[in-house]
Amino acid sequence: MRPGRKKPARARASRLQRTNYKWIYLFLLPTVIIFAMFYVVPIVEVFVTSFTQWDGFNAPRFNGIRNYINLFNSHSFLTSLKNLFWWCVIAMTLHVGFGTLVAFVLFHRPRGWKVTRAVFMIPNVISAAAWAMIYRFIFNDDIGVLNSLIRLVNPDFSVDWFYVSPWAFWSVTFTWLFYAVIVTLIVLGDLLNIPQELTEAARIDGATGWQLIRYVHLPLCRTAIGTSIICSLTSRIAMYEQIALTTAGGPDYETVSLPILLVNAITDYRYGYANAVGVLMFLFGLVILWLVNRLFRMDETDY
Score class of each variant (00 low, 15 high):
Arg2Asp: 03
Arg2Gly: 11
Lys7Asn: 01
Leu16Cys: 08
Tyr21Val: 06
Ile24Cys: 10
Leu28Tyr: 02
Thr31Phe: 11
Ile33Lys: 05
Phe51Gly: 00
Trp54Ala: 05
Asp55Asn: 12
Asn58Arg: 13
Ala59Gly: 08
Ile69Lys: 08
Leu71Met: 15
Ser74Ile: 05
Ser74Leu: 06
Ser80Phe: 06
Leu81Ala: 10
Leu81Phe: 09
Leu84Lys: 11
Leu84His: 14
Trp87Tyr: 13
Cys88Thr: 09
Gly97Trp: 07
Phe98Ile: 13
Phe98Leu: 14
Phe98Met: 08
Gly99Cys: 04
Gly99Trp: 07
Ala103Tyr: 01
Phe104Asn: 08
Val105Ser: 10
Gly112Thr: 11
Met121Cys: 09
Ile122Met: 06
Ala129Gln: 01
Ala129Cys: 04
Ala130Met: 10
Met133Gly: 01
Ile143Ala: 07
Ile150Lys: 00
Arg151Thr: 03
Val153Gly: 12
Pro155Lys: 03
Ser158Trp: 05
Asp160Gln: 06
Ser171Arg: 02
Val172Asn: 09
Phe174Arg: 00
Thr175Val: 10
Thr175Ile: 08
Phe178Ile: 03
Phe178Tyr: 15
Phe178Thr: 01
Tyr179Gln: 06
Ala180Arg: 12
Val181Asp: 14
Ile182Leu: 10
Val183Glu: 04
Asp190Cys: 08
Leu191Asp: 04
Arg203Glu: 10
Ile204Val: 15
Ala207Asn: 14
Thr208Lys: 11
Gln211Met: 09
Leu212Cys: 09
His217Ser: 12
Arg222Phe: 02
Thr223Asp: 08
Thr223Tyr: 10
Ala224Leu: 07
Ile225Tyr: 13
Ser228Thr: 05
Ser228Ala: 15
Ile229Asn: 14
Arg236Val: 09
Tyr240Lys: 01
Thr246Asp: 05
Val263Leu: 06
Asn264Gly: 14
Asn264Ile: 07
Tyr271Pro: 08
Gly272Ile: 01
Asn275Leu: 06
Asn275Phe: 11
Asn275Met: 15
Ala276Trp: 09
Val277Pro: 00
Leu283Thr: 03
Trp290Phe: 15
Leu291Phe: 14
Arg297Lys: 13
Arg297Asn: 06
Asp299Arg: 11
Tyr303Thr: 04
